[in-house]
């Protein structure tokens, strides 16, 4: 029964990983950009929620009305002032720019809030520890279930948005060929601004989820970036449903690893990531070799 519970907890943890990987995957699929400041932005949003709750008495259930628009506006500024300009210099410069940005954000948060760990749990009442008993001895936290449902809802909503709305179609088309969309009256720069703003809102949701389910500090962004990156790569970078699958795989691996050994939580997650990465590249090579072999065999016969 303990394994069933661990796998179940892993699935719920995977929901959080999918949530934080969502924005990273979205920006990569639309703009081909690996945003190394992704985790730091999640921390910025988490501190935004915390500051509103601590100083203004606004719990996260109300605070999102201020944090989401603020992060979306930050996304607009990020795209216009940093990403759009650095993208003109090739693939590497925007990656380095976001790396520099993450250092700035981490240290600004440290300067403003200090090194103390914080949590949004005190501001959400008994939701932070309340649970349901599914079977004899198998409990699931209500918050973890809500975060999982939020991840599925967010990824599903984004998928619907991308396939059913004109802006969504324009975002997908811009990701494929930004020169040609101009011929159809679409301003590719504006589309990228919208995409970045959307990604920043998803980062905010992930930041809130992290803040409610755990503690955070100014330098907690980097581990979150690593988890997001692993989930996105395992699921297939750029695929939204793949991101959910990647998050679930990572969550289950960590949860099962933790059951095997106390140190197994992180090791199992990283090992799964490496196995998937190596398997994927190896399978690609095997497929290439098989295609060449089939071609030669056809020519020979």
């Amino acid at each position: 029964m303990i394994w069933v519970e661990q796998i179940f907890q892993g699935i719920l943890l995977g929901g959080y990983y999918a949530l934080i990987a969502c924005g990273l995957s979205f920006m990569f699929s639309v703009m081909g950009l690996v945003n190394l400041a992704h985790g730091s932005f999640a921390m910025l949003a988490a501190f935004g929620f915390w500051a509103l709750a601590e100083y203004a008495g606004l719990p996260p259930t109300i605070g999102w009305t201020a944090v989401f628009p603020a992060m979306a506006l930050l996304g607009v500024a990020l795209q216009r002032l940093v990403l759009d300009r650095s993208a003109r210099s090739g693939f590497l410069i925007p990656v380095l720019a976001t790396f520099g940005l993450s250092i700035c954000i981490d240290n600004l948060l440290f300067q403003q809030f200090g090194a103390d760990t914080r949590s949004l749990a005190p501001f959400i009442g008994d939701l932070s520890y309340d649970s349901w008993e599914l079977a004899d001895g198998v409990f699931v936290g209500k918050l973890a279930v809500y975060i999982f449902l939020a991840a599925v809802g967010l990824l599903g909503g984004l998928q619907l948005f991308l396939s059913r709305t004109q802006l969504g179609r324009a975002i997908r088309a811009t990701a494929i060929d930004r020169d040609t969309v101009g011929l159809l009256g679409i301003d590719a720069n504006w589309i990228n601004i919208c995409a970045t703003a959307i990604a920043m809102v998803t980062v905010s949701i992930a930041g809130a989820a992290l803040g409610m389910r755990a503690t955070f500090d100014p330098y907690a962004g980097t581990p979150q970036l690593i988890f997001a990156f692993e989930a996105a790569v395992i699921g297939g970078t750029g695929s939204l449903w793949g991101t959910l699958l990647g998050g679930l795989t990572l969550g289950i691996a960590q949860s099962v690893g933790a059951q095997i050994s106390p140190q197994g939580f992180l090791i199992a997650g990283h090992a799964t990531f490496l196995v998937v990465l190596v398997a994927r590249t190896s399978l690609d090579r095997i497929a290439d070799v098989w295609r060449i072999f089939s071609f030669v065999r056809t020519k020979a016969s």
Binding site: Q166, A170, G185
Partner: peptide, 10 residues
């Protein structure tokens, strides 16, 4: 979807 993108010109 390709056709509908043309509506973006407004």
């Amino acid at each position: 979807e390709n056709l509908l993108l043309g509506l973006s010109a407004g």
